[in-house]
């Protein structure tokens, strides 16, 4: 009987679906982050680099000694933590988003090229993938940053390179198996060009795996950015980023814990929200799992 009622239940329209609570949280959090990143410049209470040595290491407002003039307190140079946090979110999101996008587009394209041309092109791509996978990325990043002095653009490109090999490998494997699939062959016998076959048929059909990989990759990119900045090799002061803030706040963990904890919390929730949302989006995108 239960199966019968299931079949009879009318299909809900796309956005009428009840979202799981965690997804609501994720969407809300990411929307908040995006809002902060976009509008932050308008309402930042202070310049993020403005130093006020009279107000060093002030605690946040809800702690003893805190004041409304610095809601999240100040750091060791008396800079407003809220203002710095806003700028850090802007920088870190920009680096992670653009970096992930570059990696995804580049990796997918390389994977498709390998799958389409096969032969020596494929061999070459596979060798490159294996090389990339065998080199610890942190070391590569250190080398690149050491050779070419650090700039935001270079850093974003570096983040873009991170993880391309996974996209390429996934895309190549899935494209190879789908090109033999009935629907790809069918579209080919209809006279479709390779562009149409890959763009309209194969890519949408393998997008699931790529989106999942992207949602795994995005938090990792944030983490990588954070780690490099923490080590002092990423975003350079006076510019600030989440990792950079955690790195400098580390020295004051015992006396001024909010310096490291607040950006760390932002990192934690952002990566978690993105991972949860990605998983959910994947389920929604697949018509066969509805």
């Amino acid at each position: 009987m239960t199966t019968h009622t299931e079949i009879a239940a009318p299909r809900r329209a796309k956005w009428q679906l009840k979202l799981p609570l965690l997804i609501w949280f994720s969407i809300a959090w990411l929307a908040l982050m995006l809002l902060i990143a976009v509008t932050g410049d308008l309402w930042q209470p202070y310049e993020y680099q403005a130093i006020d040595l009279h107000a060093r290491l002030q605690p946040p407002v809800w702690l003893e000694g805190g004041s409304w003039s610095h809601i999240f307190g100040t750091d060791h140079l008396g800079r407003d933590v809220l203002s710095r946090l806003v700028t850090s979110i802007q920088v870190s999101l920009l680096v992670a988003l653009v970096g992930t996008l570059i990696g995804a587009v580049m990796g997918t394209l390389i994977g498709l090229i390998a799958a389409h041309f096969r032969g020596w092109v494929d061999d070459l791509v596979m060798i490159a993938i294996d090389y990339q996978a065998a080199i610890p990325f942190m070391i590569l990043a250190l080398a690149v940053v050491a050779f070419f002095s650090n700039s935001l653009l270079l850093f974003i490109l570096l983040m873009g390179i991170y993880g391309w090999e996974r996209y390429a490998r996934i895309t190549r494997g899935l494209a190879l198996s789908s090109i033999q699939h009935g629907y790809a062959v069918a579209v080919r016998t209809l006279g479709a060009s390779p562009w149409r076959i890959y763009g309209r048929h194969i890519l949408p059909n393998i997008a699931n795996a790529l989106i999942v990989n992207m949602t795994l990759n995005f938090p990792q990119t944030i983490m990588l950015e954070t780690s490099l900045s923490f080590l002092g090799l990423g975003i350079q002061p006076p510019m600030t980023s989440l990792g950079n803030m955690v790195g400098f706040g580390r020295d004051y963990l015992l006396t001024a814990w909010w310096l490291a904890s607040l950006p760390a919390l932002v990192i934690f929730f952002t990566t978690l929200a993105f991972a949860l949302l990605g998983d959910w989006v994947r389920d929604r995108l697949d018509p066969t799992s509805r």
Binding site: G182, Y183, V185, A186, A192, R196, P204, N205
Partner: peptide, 26 residues
């Protein structure tokens, strides 16, 4: 050409109507 396995021959991510329109678009 008409295929042996109709499920495999159809793109799982396109509606039936769109798939029949596609040859005309091509």
């Amino acid at each position: 050409y008409v295929f042996q396995d109709p499920l495999g021959a159809l793109d799982p991510r396109m509606t039936v109507l769109d798939q029949v329109i596609e040859p005309l678009t091509i």
